[in-house]
Nucleic acid binder design. Structure first.
Lengths: 132, 132
DNA sequence: TCGCACACGTTATAGCATAACGCAATTGAT
DNA sequence: ATCAATTGCGTTATGCTATAACGTGTGCGA
């Protein structure tokens, strides 16, 4: 499921997220796109829905925000579970993958026959610069 | 930081969560407590804030809900990072701890000097019974 | 050319969370 | 004893997040 050509709205939303230097809420995206004709939240949410599906955007559940995938061009879904470190001071997000964490969680689900569809790993705290 | 005696509102909210067989949203808790005099969301949120602080209740970020800790009596914070498997069909939540996952994430944060304050691990999917 | 799938636009509404104000009870130091 | 600080509580109002429901247009294959 590599990303097909984006529609106009999808491209606009993705562009905003890529140019941002941190995660954005749907409503912030909406505000940034008013000049491009966006008027309602659904225009943003519908685009986001597809971008999430294509794996080019991630949703940060713990802060109700969205961020462009850190691996442009690749299919991020292929890397396994995605984890995030979110700085609560500067808003920077670091995306990473850890196969050992994947393995442990997968082991757990297998042992309990739990069928995981979507896994969230998010650490909130302070990045090196902000903790100083 | 073991839990001190709960106030009336805290006890009511905790009781509702403990008796529930799954996570509840703040507004659902509010509805269940109207007979006990609850009238506003803040009454619930303020109680939840303390219960979360005491570690006797967990917040499920991915579904905006709250659940009583699976380890009554103990201080759950001591067990390290808490992880959840949430069945999207029946709503059941399984809480678990995996020290190896903790270690991997801690290693990552140490390497990047990231100071993690709160870590969320949530798997959504289908439990064994519902997947059948 | 008909039907279907999909993107899109709009209005309205539902669901989640907190700000800001004021009051009452408790505690603890002076 | 009294004053100040803290904490919990109640209320009103508001803001933020997300989706329902309806309709339009476009492209494309049967």
């Amino acid at each position: 499921m590599s990303a097909p050509a984006l529609t106009k709205n999808q491209a606009l939303v993705f562009d905003v997220l890529e140019k941002a230097d941190g995660p954005l809420s749907a409503y912030t995206i909406l505000d940034k796109l008013r000049d491009h004709g966006f008027r309602a939240p659904l225009q943003v949410y519908r685009a986001l829905e597809k971008l999430l599906e294509y794996g080019v955007v991630h949703r940060l559940e713990s802060i109700n925000s969205f961020v462009a995938c850190a691996h442009p061009g690749e299919n991020c879904h292929k890397h396994g579970i995605v984890a995030f470190a979110i700085c609560e001071s500067c808003g920077q997000v670091m995306e990473f993958h850890d196969h050992e964490v994947d393995n442990r969680l997968t082991d757990w689900t297998k042992a309990r026959k739990f069928k995981a569809e979507k896994t969230t790993i998010e650490m909130r705290g302070l990045c090196e610069a902000c903790a100083a």
